[in-house]
């Protein structure tokens, strides 16, 4: 990770930051293994440069963006809560830019209703993608409704803690959608496609009952195997961690609840 300059962004939090070594060594990134410390341990061979992201589909100006170009976008530092579907959370100072800024450049067409995302497939550099037992089908795919993608809170992150993204955190570019469970924040993105129908998403394909397309943080809708009412802040409390209440939309309800007006969030989980 190299130093990365960024302007202070509009979203700040009064909460204590999760220590950097926790943010960079307690990860879910199954392309590098299913254990929490696997991504940090097994991502040493991954090459995040050179890199390109193809933005295509229902757009007037499809384009492949080189990483240099992406790093020249107006970068902001934004501190967001991150709530994992597994019941833990962090507070992370990301560096990135609104996804909307990228989408505006390719001019989505009127028929585009959703945005799909795809992670790189490189079995030679990502040990979780090779071998006999693979936990998920690759590539990892995710998706957002177009209005969610265009929301000012939704960013493409290229760094954290003042540096470029470490491999284990989704180098060189990843999605961050702070009001949704962490697995929606697809990592190491190579393709973004504007589409008409709700796109396939990896965890929904794997277990639709447990992981919905929306996956908004919601303390009132339990995961079938555990309660989502509370969460544990990683790196705090040692052997006696306190569980804090989980907030609707991860505390971003004022900004995003209107996106789901009239929707039954127990059905659209």
């Amino acid at each position: 990770a190299a130093p990365l300059q960024a302007m202070p962004g509009p979203y700040k939090l009064d909460e204590k930051l999760t220590p950097k070594d926790a943010v960079t060594s307690y990860n879910n990134f199954y392309e590098f293994g299913v254990g929490k410390s696997d991504p940090a341990q097994n991502s040493g061979d991954f090459k995040p440069t050179p890199w390109a992201v193809s933005v295509e589909g229902l757009v007037n100006k499809p384009k492949t963006f080189g990483l240099e170009e992406l790093l020249k976008m107006p970068l902001e530092e934004r501190t967001y809560r991150m709530r994992c579907v597994e019941g833990w959370s962090m507070v992370i100072p990301w560096i990135g830019f609104p996804l909307k800024a990228l989408l505006d450049q390719v001019e989505p067409q009127g028929s585009a209703k959703y945005v799909s995302f795809e992670t790189v497939v490189r079995p030679s550099e990502m040990p979780g993608q090779s071998g006999f037992f693979q936990p998920l089908p690759w590539p990892y795919v995710e998706g957002l409704r177009l209005d969610e993608a265009n929301h000012p809170l939704t960013i493409l992150a290229v760094g954290l803690y003042g540096e470029t993204l470490p491999n284990q955190n989704g180098a060189p570019i990843r999605l961050v959608v702070p009001w949704k469970y962490g697995f929606k924040g697809i990592k190491s993105i190579v393709k973004i496609k504007l589409v008409e129908k709700q796109p396939e998403t990896t965890w929904k394909n794997s277990n639709a009952r447990e992981y919905g397309f929306y996956s908004n943080v919601n303390p009132a809708v339990d995961h079938p195997r555990w309660s989502q009412a509370t969460e544990q802040r990683i790196g705090e409390g040692g052997l006696f961690p306190e569980r804090r209440p989980t907030l609707p939309f991860n505390g971003y309800a004022d900004e995003v609840a209107s996106l789901y007006a009239g929707m039954d969030l127990k059905v659209n989980y």
């Binding site: 926790a22 990683i234 040692g238």
Partner: peptide, 15 residues
Amino acid sequence: QAATGGLGFNPVKTF
């Protein structure tokens, strides 16, 4: 290990 930080950042779950 859990009590002295040797089990990572979520020692309770790991333990």
